[in-house]
Structures are given as C-alpha cells and as structure tokens.
Design a protein around this nucleic acid. Structure first.
Lengths: 192, 192
DNA sequence: TAGATTTCTTGTCTTATGGCAAGTAGGTTT
DNA sequence: AAACCTACTTGCCATAAGACAAGAAATCTA
C-alpha cells in the first residue's frame, strides 16, 4: 500500500491500515487526453481526481467573457471543483486536461461514506481545504505586491511543470496579465 | 433559540434541536474595542468568532513588510484564521477589530468535540469552507479583470459596512492599490 | 505538401496606477 | 492653546502593463 501513487496525498492520514485500504480502493484509475474536460461549468461535480501523471487547469470567464485560468493542477495534486462537489451546486469552473495523463477518480457518494465514518479522513479533508485557502490567500498577496515579472519568476521556480507544459496564454491569464506582456517578460528574463 | 444572533449563521444546519442548543451554548459572548487584536501573527489560534456588532479585518505583510488587509469581516460573519485553527500551526494573519463591537467566541476544543459528534455540524463546516474558497476565487477574478475603480464600486455596493467604517488605507490595500490612487478614484466617482 | 490554425513575438502608442512630496483638515494629547 | 498625530488630498512625473495590429513560427489537418 505504501507504494501506491495515492499515498502521495494520503500519507499523513491518522487512521488504521484497513481504513486506508478502503480509501485507496475507493479510487478508480482513469486515463485522460489533452484537452479533455473533467468538468464543465454548469454541470454538477460528481467526483474529484488525483493526478498521477500529466497537467490540468481550472478556468472560468470574466465579465467580458474572456477565459481566466484560475489554477494549474500538476502531478500529485487534487483536481476538484470544491463548491460544486461539496455544496451540490452547478460548477462555476471548468476542469480541463492540458496534457495526456493518468488520474485516480473517487466519486462523491463513496467519498461521502468514508468521510462520515472516518474521523481521520475527515480531518484530512479539512486540513486540505485549509491549505487551499492558505495558498489562495498567498497568491492574492503576491498578485498585489509583486510585479508581473516577479510573479512569473516565482512560478518558474515553484511550478516547473506548469512552465514546461502549459501554453503562454494560460500562464498569462493565471498571472493576471496579457499574453503580450508575458511574452515580453520572458524575453526580458532571458536577456539577463 | 430561533431569535439568537448565532442563528444567522447556523440556520441551515441539518440537525436536531438539542444539538443546535449544544452548539449555541458552546459560544461565549465577548465585547471588543476598536484596535484590539483577536489574534496575532505567530500565535496559535484557539477560537473563532461570530461578529454580531462591529467590523474587523484580517491583515498580514508583503515581502517589503508593508501591511496588506486581506479581508474585512462584518456583522453576521465569521472571524477566523483557518490555517492556524485547523492545522494547529502559528497564525500567518493578524485579526483586528476596526470598531467597538460584540462577538460570540467558540474555543477550538469545544468546537472540535461537536464537530466530530455531529455530522450536520461537520457538513456545515465543510460548506462554509467551500464558500470561502469560492469567494476568494471570485475576488481573484475581479482583481485581474476589473479596473481599480470598478473593484471599488463593487465593494461600495456589496459591502457598505466596510466603506462606512474602514479607513481609506485599509480599503486601498484590500483592493490592491495605494491609498493615493483610491483617494483619486473616490474623487472621480463623486464627480459623476 | 500545402493550407489552415494556433501560438508566440514584436512595434507603436495609450493609459492606469505608482512614487514621492507637500499640503490640509480633524481629532487627540499635554 | 499648542503641539502632534493620523487620515486624506493633490500635484508632478515615471513606468508597468494594456490595446491593437502585423508578422513569424510552430503545429495540426486534409
């Protein structure tokens, strides 16, 4: 069990071995293709995914109707639309694959069963959500206190996979700038 | 029980009347003064607060050491440092009163007991966190797609209490602009 | 292989916002 | 009343990033 890909996220679970098995077995291995939508805005989310191989993004639209990439989800991370899954409301974001890959899918009902039975799993879920909130706040601080090029540099050092696999326009909207600006920033950085 | 201030947030709880009483009684009424810190960066959070009367803010510092107001918490909202309380790590944010007021405080251990016993309360907590994530994402979209003055106008219509009670510099850093710029934006808006 | 589409780059010009500094107006303290 | 803060305003100038448009390069497709 300790060599299972899912252990990358469930390692800190404070539970018995058999409960852990139950959780791991509740996931189903799925392969995905570049461009594929895991979830479409307006639909009801019915599962979340652990990305073993590949890269995905979450995106939505601003008031002008332009796409905004709100998050990149890389290997060993969880691809999920929290609001839709946990509040049972239509998704506000799209979840899309940016490369071919492999993921582990757990459906809501199964998740929910275990969530209510296992307080260790429950705590894990809350801690995971806390981390999400934390990192979103951190990103907000970066976005108001760092220049666009510093934000890019930070991404460059912390999320190598994104820089390598995501196209410029997605990275630009994630950073809150235009693709034109990002192209110039890249040029500027290379010339140093 | 239905007239209790705390019912403003716990109204959608899917639980029995006696459980609800238990939850409400777990809160203690506290009065607070303008400027007072509920929680200081570096400390361990040990409670959260429901604000009945008054206004508070969460703030931290950017890499230059400048204060950034990350959130305003108004009446009928919850004042909390999620990461510190649920992950048992030192607080990254300060929580401060911006006016005199009244709050209801619940300490972590008491909360935790009920949280594990009552699946209705547990669900409520998860839904609350989901909403937080949702609104943070929404703010991010606003911050990259709206002009500073549109962001101010949005705050003006949606969070009247903040405009009325928070000082310009706090609002400015919340919006991600300088106080100078906000002053000009206000002038511009008034002239229309 | 040619055509079409998407991705990225570059040029020119505009504009929103920041940096700094000085000034005003209220409120508080001594 | 004088001195002192703090909150806010205003002026001047600098600059990061956007808008628009054209081109180059890469990728997909027929």
């Amino acid at each position: 069990m300790s060599g299972h890909p899912l252990m990358k996220i469930y390692k800190n679970l404070n539970i018995k071995e058999e409960e852990l098995k139950l959780i791991i077995n509740a996931h189903e291995r799925v392969e995905f293709e570049k461009g594929q939508l895991f979830l479409e805005r307006g639909q009801m989310a019915n599962a979340y995914y652990f990305i073993e191989v590949g890269l995905a993004r979450a995106f939505t639209y601003d008031f002008k109707g332009d796409e905004i990439t709100t998050d990149f989800i890389g290997e060993n991370e969880i691809l999920i639309e929290v609001s839709s899954l946990f509040r049972r409301i239509p998704a506000q974001e799209n979840l899309q694959a940016l490369s071919d890959g492999v993921a582990w899918r757990i459906v809501f009902n199964t998740f929910q069963d275990i969530y209510h039975k296992s307080s260790g799993f429950n705590e894990w879920g809350r801690a995971w959500m806390s981390e999400q909130l934390f990192s979103l706040k951190q990103r907000h601080i970066d976005s108001v206190s760092l220049s666009a090029s510093d934000r890019y540099l930070k991404l460059l050092t912390h999320k190598t996979q994104v820089i390598q696999q995501a196209s410029l326009k997605y990275i630009a909207s994630y950073l809150g700038i235009t693709d034109t600006s990002l192209s110039r920033i890249r040029k500027e950085i290379l010339s140093k």
